[in-house]
Amino acid sequence: MTTSRRQHTLEVLVENEPGVLARVAGLFSRRAFNIETLNVGPTEDSSISKMVIGVAVEGHSLEQVIAQLDKLVSVISIKDVTGKVKEVHDTQPDYQN
């Protein structure tokens, strides 16, 4: 992986409702933002899902990606967790549970 593309990881809490994945994926597509990775899973609150999105920011600022995502009514919160997800995995591997 070259370093010319800036990688970011966003942790996005969304309403757990039909079509929410299409809303997020459609936003990235129509604004020409790049999704590198995408994981969707449940949270403790069954009405809320968590998306972890790997974004390659190229030609856009991360602020613009976050601001556009935040305009989706179904998006509750966005956290930039770049670097942090990896650390968590390093210190607390899943198999310890």
């Binding site: 079509g19 299409a22 809303r23 459609g26 129509r30 305009k71 989706l72 009514v73 179904s74």
Partner: peptide, 11 residues
Amino acid sequence: IRGITMPFTKH
């Protein structure tokens, strides 16, 4: 129509 209008409805 919900899918069709996602890009240009506020919600």
